[in-house]
């Protein structure tokens, strides 16, 4: 009985403290963050569109041009990460530099570089997927599920 009352009191104290923390904690500057995300994210996509338009102009088919554009953008993201620029952009741009495929390249390269000191097999090799792994995993699972449904309702 005493124990129970103690627990209830503790929970109330924790809730009270949680409310205090929420009151004191600075809020993220939503408008500024969104403008940065919009500007940087939009710009990355615009650059992608430039490459896409060029590749279509030189006569590539639509699917190949799309794939080639993805490869080019991934290369740019990887290079900027290697040069130590992408994380600086990310500090400001938030989702603007995470959501585009360059952000996918960024997490892969950042993880790979980070674990170089632990060797190429268990350092780079294993850790390169630390964030990209979950992304690919859920992407593949979703794709197979969708394919199965497509097969069934055909």
């Amino acid at each position: 009985m005493y124990e129970e009352k103690n627990e209830a009191l503790k929970a109330a104290e924790k809730q009270e403290y949680k409310d205090l923390v929420n009151r004191v904690k600075p809020k993220p500057p939503l408008l500024v963050n969104c403008l940065w995300a919009f500007g940087v994210g939009g710009l990355i996509c615009l650059i992608g569109q430039l490459f896409l338009n060029y590749l279509l102009n030189i006569g590539m088919n639509k699917a190949d041009a799309g794939s080639a554009t993805a490869v080019i953008m991934i290369f740019i993201g990887a290079l900027l990460t290697g040069l130590g620029v992408y994380d600086k952009i990310g500090e400001k741009a938030g989702a603007g530099s995470i959501v585009p495929i360059t952000g996918f390249a960024n997490v892969i390269v950042a993880s790979a570089m980070e674990f170089k000191k632990e060797g190429y097999i268990f350092g780079v090799g294993a850790r390169i997927f630390s964030i990209a792994g979950p992304t690919l995993l859920f992407g593949f699972v979703a794709s197979v599920l969708i394919g199965l449904v497509a097969l069934i309702i055909k």
């Binding site: 615009l46 959501v99 952000g103």
Partner: peptide
């Protein structure tokens, strides 16, 4: 276009 394909 790329605005929809480049995001993940």
């Amino acid at each position: 276009g790329a605005g929809a394909t480049i995001p993940l």
